[in-house]
Amino acid sequence: MKQAVLVVDVQPSFDPPDWLVERSRLLATKFPSVATVERHNEDKVPFFRQIGWKPRSVDESLVQADHIVLKYGYSPPPEVIAQFQSWKVDRVLVCGIQADTCVLAAGFALFDAGLQPTIIADTVVGSSLDRSGKLGVDLWQHHFGQVIDRHSDIL
Rank of each mutant, 00 (worst) to 15 (best):
P46N: 03
E42L: 07
G52T: 13
I51Y: 13
R23K: 14
Q50Y: 11
E38L: 13
V45L: 04
R39W: 13
T29D: 07
V37E: 09
L26C: 15
A35I: 00
H40P: 03
T36R: 04
W53E: 14
L20C: 09
P32R: 06
E22R: 00
V45K: 02
A35C: 12
H40E: 09
V37C: 12
S33C: 07
F48P: 06
P32S: 01
T36A: 03
W53Y: 13
S24I: 05
E22H: 05
E22N: 06
I51A: 15
L27F: 06
W53I: 10
P46G: 02
V21E: 08
F47A: 07
A28L: 06
K44F: 02
L26M: 15
V45Q: 04
E42I: 08
H40S: 05
E42D: 06
R25L: 11
P46A: 09
F47D: 03
R39Y: 11
E38R: 04
E22M: 10
D43S: 11
A28C: 11
G52H: 13
K30V: 00
P32G: 00
R49P: 08
P32A: 08
E22W: 06
V34S: 03
S24Q: 09
F31Y: 11
H40K: 13
P46T: 03
L27H: 05
V37W: 10
P32Y: 03
F47Q: 07
T36E: 06
K30P: 05
L27Q: 12
R49I: 10
S33N: 01
V37K: 09
V45R: 10
T29Y: 05
F31S: 00
R25D: 04
T36Y: 04
F31W: 08
H40F: 15
F48A: 13
V21L: 05
T36N: 00
R39P: 03
L26E: 11
L27Y: 13
V37N: 06
W53A: 11
R39E: 12
W53C: 04
R23F: 04
A35S: 14
V45T: 04
S33Y: 03
E22P: 00
V45H: 12
F48L: 10
T29N: 03
G52C: 15
R23W: 08
L27M: 14
L20F: 12
R23I: 02
E42R: 01
Q50G: 12
W53T: 00
V21I: 12
L26I: 10
I51P: 05
K30R: 06
L20R: 02
